[in-house]
Amino acid sequence: MPDSLKDRVKAAAESDQPTGQPPVADIALRDDHLKWLQSHGTYFTDALPRHVDKAHFTAVALSVLPNLKNCTNHSIMTSLLACARFGLEPDGRQAAIIPYGSTATFQPMYQGYIELMYRHPAVDTVHFGWIREKDEWDFEPTAPSPRDFRHRPRVDLTDDERGPVILAYAFAWIGGHRSQVIMLNRPQATEIRDKYSKGYAKAVREGKNDSPWQTSFDAMWAKSCVRRLVKVVPTSTELTELINADDDADNTSAAPAVIRGTVISRDDQDDEPIPSGSWPETAQPGSAPTDEAGEQR
């Protein structure tokens, strides 16, 4: 039996819809998230460094909110303010906001540390790299810098063909001179995790697998290496505070509420949660391979 007029009109209307257009419900939800961010905008705009574009930071923060649907309003605000305070985007590269149950937690990554190192006027460049099993490399501590260290990646091979990563390294050029080369192998990174990470120890005790050392070992390995570089480059108050915030974040039982004297109290914000609606599926920040001293906790 031929289709009814109603069916034909419906089919024609559906065929006129542009392909790849997000569902209307998702657009509305995104607008709700944007309104929520804008309503709390003074926290971020007051904290962001001048060189950070406010609109871009808001767009990145907006993309993170779907991953934090079960987190408290207070912990989300605290984590976003921490990102803004240090001028780091919560994009999974400079920093990430990781949900631990109902607590959103600020987690700086190794690129975030490098970003803050570059802000010191004496630092020319900062380099981080991975050495793979089949790469050509040599380290001779007694040789004069920069001839003491050499790394030649096998550019004729894929990463898989170059073999597994065996070493992370980092160094900086400061006033035309190269710093000490910081090197960290996998057993050393594992030792840092086992000895210093309260978050990892807590996850093991509770039989969970949600600490960054468990979900993103290489990212934490890289961050531990770069954090050690902090000891041999010119430091700033901002860089020292980032290390302290990073250490506080490892205690996943609570998110730190003070960032450089800025306090977000329960009285400073409304109790209205982020609109939940039908949450769209969104990849966890930092879930893709990234490519976060004191030691990394």
Rank of each mutant, 00 (worst) to 15 (best):
Ala283Trp: 07
Tyr196Thr: 08
Ile243Arg: 02
Gln180Glu: 15
Asp271Lys: 12
Cys83Tyr: 11
Ala47Ile: 04
Phe86Gly: 10
Trp173Cys: 02
Ser102Val: 12
Asp159Trp: 08
Arg297Trp: 06
Val60Arg: 00
Pro66Glu: 09
Thr72Trp: 06
Asn251Tyr: 13
Ala96Val: 09
Leu184Phe: 10
Asp250Thr: 04
Ile274Pro: 09
Pro108Asn: 03
Lys134Gly: 01
Ser4Trp: 01
Met1His: 11
Pro23Leu: 08
Leu167Phe: 00
Asn73Asp: 15
Gly87Pro: 06
Ile182Thr: 05
Leu167Thr: 08
Ser278Asn: 15
Ile174Ala: 04
Leu80Asp: 07
Ile27Ala: 14
Lys54Phe: 14
Pro164Ala: 11
Glu115Trp: 08
His151Glu: 06
Ala25Leu: 13
Tyr100Gln: 04
Ala219Val: 07
Pro153Asn: 04
Ala95Tyr: 08
Pro153Thr: 07
Glu14Val: 06
Val226Gln: 01
Ala219Glu: 04
Ser15Pro: 00
Ala254Gly: 02
Asp7Ser: 13
Asn244Gln: 11
Arg50Trp: 03
Val24Phe: 12
Arg8Leu: 13
Lys198Ser: 05
Lys134Tyr: 10
Leu116Lys: 03
Leu88Ala: 05
Ser236Tyr: 12
Tyr118Cys: 09
Ala222Lys: 11
Ile97Ser: 08
Lys10Met: 10
Phe86Asn: 03
Ala96Phe: 05
Gln188His: 10
Lys202Met: 04
Thr105Phe: 02
Asp248Val: 09
Leu68Pro: 08
Glu281Gly: 03
Ile182Pro: 00
Pro164Lys: 04
Ala201Tyr: 00
Ser179Leu: 06
Tyr118Phe: 15
Asn244Tyr: 01
Leu5Cys: 13
Arg50Cys: 07
Asn244Trp: 07
Arg266Ala: 14
